[in-house]
């Protein structure tokens, strides 16, 4: 394979979106081409640093409740659906007791 072909496929190679035989062809090229090997390794390192280095905040219960309250206010048709504590059944009518 030529370097230009490898560079075009490097993104798919990183995401493992190529066939097994194509992955192997690229790996063989990387073993004997230091420039392409550097390209592949440095891009993968940058991706790992990005994953380790980004902040991963979580929504607090307080913020979540505030947003849900805004939504409930904006859409008056919304109703809280509560599960009944007792299984719901229709009241018995006199005819239910008739033989």
């Amino acid at each position: 394979m030529k370097c230009t072909e490898v560079r075009e496929l490097l993104g798919n190679y990183m995401d493992q979106e190529l066939t097994e035989s194509m992955m192997q062809r690229i790996e063989r090229h990387l073993l004997r081409c230091p420039a392409c090997a550097y390209e592949a390794r440095s891009l993968e390192q940058a991706r790992q640093l990005l994953r380790q280095g980004v902040e991963t905040p979580m929504v607090s219960e307080q913020i979540g409740e505030r947003v849900l309250r805004h939504i409930a206010e904006r859409f008056p048709h919304l109703q809280q659906v509560h599960q009944p504590e007792e299984p719901f059944s229709l009241p018995l009518l006199p005819e239910d007791f008739e033989e």
């Binding site: 979580m58 947003v67 409930a72 919304l78």
Partner: peptide, 20 residues
């Protein structure tokens, strides 16, 4: 149809990812 529980499910499923 007006089900607030559906809103809560969708909200909590994606809230952290949207905030991040």
């Amino acid at each position: 149809a007006g089900d607030m529980q559906a809103v809560e499910t969708l909200f909590w499923r994606y809230a952290d990812a949207v905030l991040a």
